[in-house]
Design a protein around this nucleic acid. Structure first.
Lengths: 281, 281
DNA sequence: AAAACGACTTGATCCTGATCAAGAATTTCT
DNA sequence: AGAAATTCTTGATCAGGATCAAGTCGTTTT
């Protein structure tokens, strides 16, 4: 048993697949075990399994081609490597192509506010456009590959490609929408609701990416989950235990299996229908 | 005393100046007391005192002219009027030109999460771009005038005006940055820090607009402040009282005078230097 | 294999801010 | 002007979750 777990654990580390996300192009690698250098896994947008989630979403093949021409694919980051830090000059947006990333806003004394966890297909760095430098930092939670999109070039391209411009506006707008959802979470929801919401968000995002919605590995620690959700580590830990006792899920360290997804949704929606903190003009 | 207060109160209501913000073009009106129809106060961007804060910021005069040509200036909204509601089709971004607006995300039972309070020069509706319909609502907190900017036209214009496109990216990015600051506020800060932060934000924004940084009227209720900051009304009320007892400010209902702004800043920054909720990978 | 370390869990206690309740001050309605 | 409805304040009590403390489990180092 331990052997098997270790096998998978080592396997994940070695491949950088901590959360069971495999770029489609790696399937050959996984089955054949041929040694393939990282150079070879640089996939053009048009062949990338993420294009439906990612920036090229909805663009015509020609437009994708043009977008592709400005994208840089660098070497992968390892767990703990920074993609950028607060204060770094902003030059590129980045799309995660495999692995996962945490963004956070550090405060001088070493404390931090975790701003988000990002999976493949997600675009990060949008907040840095406004003053051409990063106010937040981004760090790889496991072996992670990214596409870099030099912003100046993206901007020029988008001004001659209305569909790309439109896509950019949509993505920026979506980011705002996600942030405001998070405001509601932090402003109004109980610890229980926050964790349920967190888990379902991952469930949905894994599902979108073709992985199990009910069985996955989280790539972040309890500390990071707590920080993100505005809770103490101990609270997060206790909630996991309670959820398990209530047969909502099974959890062993970072491996989570959601057993009763509908009931998790009930928990999240509970606040919408009971609490009424009206505010009149 | 009451007479004087009522005088100003009525004056404000009649003119829609609840938070002491006067479009520059109204000064003639205020001194001469001529009756001027609202038609006459429709100011072109190039003559508008807000252009430095608003969308035209940094555009060339020619570009401002072109932007101006697509902007619609409608009749003012009265206190309690909705600019848009959740579910409304999105067609325009809006810039507040006078007055103030609350945006909120309603949940079925009448409860709500206040997302922001917006003053003149601020652009709202950015979150609705992504799916062409509003998920949030916006309501006037007092008599409020807005410029409407039809988004489709803005989009076309921005694709032939790189400077406008750039400005849009910056504004969208700024919005994201503001939201993430708010996440830190709600995730990590105490009630005291939240209210101090709230007051200083208004102080700064009033100052930017040429008004007193230390003496202003808030256009929202305690309920709305509490809702926005993730606090109960009672807590907000108690904090105002305490801040007054500590000579940080003087407050009488919605009229606030900040007496010791430096100390308010200390309160806000306190958390950055004491609490350390580290989170390791 | 032992030791050291970091991540996580569990228990006990404390405190901030929510909730409940009542009253005062304003505003709105008639 | 008087009544009714709101908004705001203040006090008392309660509870959710933070903090403190100790221990377990798993991994890494030597």
């Amino acid at each position: 048993m331990i052997l098997i777990k270790n096998f998978w654990k080592n396997r994940r580390d070695e491949l950088g697949l901590g959360i069971h996300i495999y770029p489609s192009c790696w399937s050959e690698f996984l089955t054949s075990r041929k040694v393939i250098s990282f150079e070879n896994i640089k996939v053009a947008c048009k062949n990338c399994s993420l294009s439906a989630l990612c920036l090229p979403m909805g663009l015509s093949p020609d437009d994708v081609e043009r977008l592709d021409s400005i994208i840089k694919r660098g070497r992968p980051y390892h767990r703990g490597d920074h993609l950028y830090r607060g204060g770094d000059k902003f030059h590129s947006l980045r799309v995660i192509t495999s692995g996962s990333v945490k963004t956070y806003s550090p405060n001088e004394d070493g404390g931090e506010q975790v701003l988000g966890f990002h999976l493949q297909g997600e675009l990060i760095g949008l907040d840095a456009i406004k003053d051409e430098s990063h106010n937040c930092a981004a760090i790889a939670l496991e072996t992670t590959a990214v596409c870099e999109i030099p912003f100046l070039q993206l901007e020029s391209l988008s001004s001659i490609m209305p569909s790309l411009q439109h896509q950019m506006y949509r993505l920026l707008s979506r980011e705002i929408g996600q942030d405001t959802e998070m405001l509601t979470l932090l402003g109004k929801k109980s610890a229980e609701e926050r964790l349920a919401s967190f888990l379902l968000s991952f469930s949905e995002r894994f599902k979108q990416r073709g992985f199990s919605a009910s069985d996955f590995f989280l790539s972040m620690s309890r500390y990071e989950i707590g920080n993100y959700l505005g809770l103490a580590v101990e609270t997060v830990s206790r909630l996991f235990t309670r959820f398990q006792d209530e047969s909502l899920l099974r959890v062993e360290r970072r491996h989570v299996q959601l057993v009763d997804i509908p009931r998790l949704y009930e928990i999240v929606q509970r606040s919408d229908s009971t609490k009424s903190s009206q505010s009149r003009v």
